Computed example of a mutant assay.
Amino acid sequence: MSIPTTHLFTFDPTYGMQLDALLAIVPPKAPAGFDAFWADRYAQALTVDPKPAIRESRTSHPKWQVHDITYFSTGGFPIGGWLLVPRDGVVRRGLVVGHGYGGRDAPDFDVPVEGTAILFPCFRGLSRSAAPSIPPDAGGHVLDRIDKPEHYVIGGCVEDLWVAVSVLSMCFPQIETRIGYSGISFGGGIGALALPYDHRIDRGHLVVPTFGNRPLWLTLPTIGSAASVQSYSRTHPGVGETLRLFDAATAAARISVPMLVAVALFDPAVAPPCQFSVANALPKSPCNEIFILDAGHFDYLHSEAQHAALQTKVGHFFRTP
């Protein structure tokens, strides 16, 4: 391991915890009504006609046909993104790829999959799905309508993911039962919240997922989106109760499909104890794997080798059956 020891943060991004302690973290219990809250939202998302509009993108790539795509999510919210279709071969799988809180400026062309149509949606309020009513920065976005659980932007982003699955199923009916999800950081937390309730998704890959173990998330120093919520909570102490409905670790305990989760030992943006809370919550199964990174949201020695090893696992994980 090459956990960073030199940094300029005013706090310790390991939070004084080594691997054994991180693996022993117990996720929080679900609040009353947790499953009903999300199951109802999923049922509503399934009623949406997304009306996808696809056009050829100005971006080109030798391996992929690149398309710009728009669709409508819940509440008629317009979502923009990209759709990659392999130039060679038959589409036999689908993959929805979420992004971090930095948004997304372009699709990733190095996703290690074959025979797979890949949808890169931008979650509501961010990048191609920006809207005047939602702050575009992480600190503002994460607070958008946080005092109204039914309208909190994070719930809307989960719905955007579910509707993205509907879009792939509409565009490629043959892959309806073979759609995966991959998300990093913000997209990892959104994925953990979405996966238990959408049985159209057959496997998930999360990297340094946020929103795990909200009681801890509200207390640990960070440079990430949690910092603005922590500041808000000082004058709105009831927000902690609302956030229990949006706990990625609570949701992860309910995921029943194969999972590959990468978590970091050092991370100034998403506290490792919160990441491990998500990974530890997964049901014990030979189909689930936890991949340990030395650091997240930070450049470190041997990072290229670790991420290359993770990419190899991702390729096997999403291999076309």
Rank of each mutant, 00 (worst) to 15 (best):
H61S: 10
E56F: 06
Q44C: 06
P50C: 06
D68V: 00
L46M: 12
Y71R: 01
R41G: 12
Y42C: 08
K63E: 13
I69A: 08
A39T: 15
A53Q: 13
T70N: 11
W38V: 09
R55I: 14
Q65V: 04
W38C: 06
I69Y: 11
P28I: 08
T59P: 00
K63V: 15
R55E: 15
R58S: 14
V48S: 03
P28C: 10
L46T: 12
V48N: 05
E56S: 13
D35Y: 04
P28K: 06
D35S: 11
K63D: 15
G75I: 04
H67C: 11
S57P: 03
E56Y: 09
Y42V: 05
P78R: 11
G76P: 01
Q44E: 14
P78M: 04
T59A: 10
P78W: 02
H67L: 09
S57H: 01
F77E: 03
S60D: 09
P50I: 02
W64N: 01
S57G: 01
I54A: 02
Y42L: 14
R41P: 01
A45C: 08
R55C: 10
D49L: 12
H61R: 00
I54P: 04
R58G: 14
D49W: 03
A32M: 09
I69C: 07
Q65A: 10
P31M: 09
S73Y: 01
F77D: 07
F37G: 03
R58M: 14
S60E: 13
D68K: 00
W64P: 01
H67Q: 11
G33F: 09
K51Q: 15
S73M: 06
Q65Y: 07
T59F: 09
G76D: 00
I54M: 05
A43M: 06
T59E: 10
W64C: 00
A32E: 15
H67W: 09
A53R: 13
T47A: 13
F72M: 08
L46A: 13
P52C: 04
Y42Q: 12
A39R: 12
T47L: 11
P78A: 02
L46K: 12
Y71C: 01
D68L: 03
D35W: 05
T74S: 07
F37E: 10
V66Y: 00
P31L: 09
G33E: 07
K51R: 10
V66R: 00
V66P: 02
S73V: 02
W64F: 06
S57V: 05
G33V: 13
A39K: 13
Q65R: 12
F72Q: 14
F37I: 11
L46Y: 02
A36C: 08
W38N: 04
A39M: 11
K51C: 12
Q44D: 13
L46D: 10
R41M: 12
A36V: 14
D49M: 08
P50G: 03
F77S: 06
P50N: 00
V66E: 01
F37H: 14
H67M: 07
T70Y: 02
A36Q: 12
Y71L: 04
R58C: 09
V48K: 03
P78K: 12
F72R: 08
A45D: 07
H61N: 15
Y71S: 02
T70P: 00
W64S: 06
A32R: 11
D40G: 13
T59H: 09
A30V: 00
